[in-house]
Amino acid sequence: MATISREIRIDAGAADVWAVIGDFAAGPRRMAPDLVLDSHVDGDCRVVTFADGTIARERLVTVDHPTRRIVYSVVGDTVRPVHDNAVMQVVPDGPDACRFVWTRDVLPDDLAPFMDTAMTTALPVIARTLSRRPGSGAA
Rank of each mutant, 00 (worst) to 15 (best):
A112V: 00
C45P: 06
V36K: 00
D64R: 06
V71K: 00
R128T: 06
V101A: 01
V17R: 00
D23N: 09
D42F: 09
P81C: 12
V75T: 15
D38P: 05
L111W: 10
D84E: 14
G27K: 01
V82E: 15
G27S: 08
T62L: 10
L111N: 08
D84V: 09
N85M: 14
T117G: 03
L130S: 05
C98S: 12
M1W: 10
D11N: 14
D52A: 07
D64A: 08
A14T: 03
V47T: 08
V74Q: 00
T67W: 01
L35D: 11
V79R: 10
T129G: 11
L123W: 04
R46Q: 05
T117H: 02
T3Q: 10
G27Q: 02
C45L: 11
D96R: 10
D23R: 00
R132K: 15
D105M: 12
T3K: 09
T103Y: 02
V48D: 00
M88H: 09
R133T: 13
M119H: 09
V36S: 00
D105G: 13
D52V: 08
Q89R: 03
R99I: 13
T78A: 05
T117W: 01
A122F: 03
G94N: 07
W102A: 05
A118V: 08
L107M: 15
V106W: 02
D64F: 09
R69T: 13
T62P: 00
H83C: 12
A19S: 14
L35A: 14
T121L: 05
R30H: 07
R9Q: 15
R30I: 05
S136C: 04
D16I: 01
A2T: 11
A12Y: 04
S73W: 08
T49H: 03
P28E: 10
P81E: 08
V20A: 10
R68P: 03
R6Y: 04
G43N: 05
T121S: 05
L35G: 10
R133L: 15
S136N: 02
A112T: 00
P134Y: 15
T62E: 12
S5N: 13
R104I: 13
R80Y: 02
D93G: 06
V41S: 11
A127K: 04
G22K: 03
V91E: 12
I55H: 10
V47K: 05
I8F: 04
T121D: 04
I126M: 07
V90E: 09
Y72S: 14
F24I: 06
R6H: 08
V87P: 09
T78Y: 02
L111T: 09
I10T: 07
D77S: 14
G76N: 12
L35V: 12
D42L: 13
F114K: 14
V91C: 09
T120A: 15
G76Q: 13
V91A: 07
A51D: 12
V82F: 06
T54V: 15
L37K: 06
D93R: 06
G135T: 01
W18G: 05
A12P: 08
A19Y: 02
G43D: 07
S136P: 01
V125G: 04
V20D: 04
D34P: 08
D84M: 13
A97E: 07
V17M: 06
A56F: 00
A14C: 08
D105I: 13
A86C: 15
T103L: 02
D11V: 09
